[in-house]
Design a protein around this nucleic acid. Structure first.
Lengths: 113, 113
DNA sequence: TATTAATATACTAATATGCTAATATTATAA
DNA sequence: TTATAATATTAGCATATTAGTATATTAATA
């Protein structure tokens, strides 16, 4: 019957999912899995506008998914929790399964005489 | 430098995350992890309006996260992929880590003289 | 065939999200 | 202190998402 406290947990869980529910942020997380990286590096690796990268980093920061460290004028970001990367991997596996299923479907279509 | 094909994969990955980025859908998935369940059962377990549950189920269905099976006038839903549940678990662990960190922070605040 | 039960869909208003362009902040260096 | 580099923030707009209400569909039964 789900009580109010548990609902609140689901809300928080949804917040984390929302944070990962944007392809640009997923690309940023992907980059950060290689290790800490400055905003400028992200901008040039991902070829996105600086302001846009900052906005996404700010969202990731607010929700505790990444941490920031300043060094001179540069700010270096890293993943706050290794499990974030693992969660991304799992979602990618789900996606791979879906694509494989579609592939199989397409093949069986092709085989029809 | 991320090519177009990889970007497309990140977009699809984001779609899956979006699907899990709503607390009502997370509650539905939570229920379905127990096993297949009809719309009516979900409605009564979650205490949500029927139309709203149907809408969320339709989103989950479209994105291949759940599957539906009709039996008479009832429709039974189940998780399409066990890994979805595992991904939810991981996100919950991330959340638990975050809450634990906040808890520790709160404690250290309380300990200050 | 008319009725009822279970589920799905269409429409709409409210809210949230993401993007661009411009501007502000922070830290270093001249 | 002025200038510059790196990053962050803000405003405004377009689009997307959500929830409620009403209605439609589907299947079983009288």
């Amino acid at each position: 019957m789900i009580d109010e406290a548990q609902m609140q947990l689901f809300r928080l869980q949804a917040e984390i999912c929302k944070t990962m529910a944007d392809y640009k942020r997923l690309m940023i997380l992907h980059e950060l899995r290689e290790g800490e990286m400055s905003v400028g590096q992200l901008v040039s690796n991902l070829d996105l506008p600086q302001a846009n990268v900052s906005q996404h980093l700010s969202i990731l920061r607010e929700r505790g998914i990444v941490t920031a460290r300043r060094e001179g004028t540069s700010v270096y970001y890293s993943l706050a929790n290794h499990k974030i990367g693992q969660a991304c991997d799992l979602v990618q596996e789900v996606l791979a399964d879906q694509l494989a299923r579609n592939q199989a479907l397409a093949n069986s279509l092709g085989e029809r005489k």
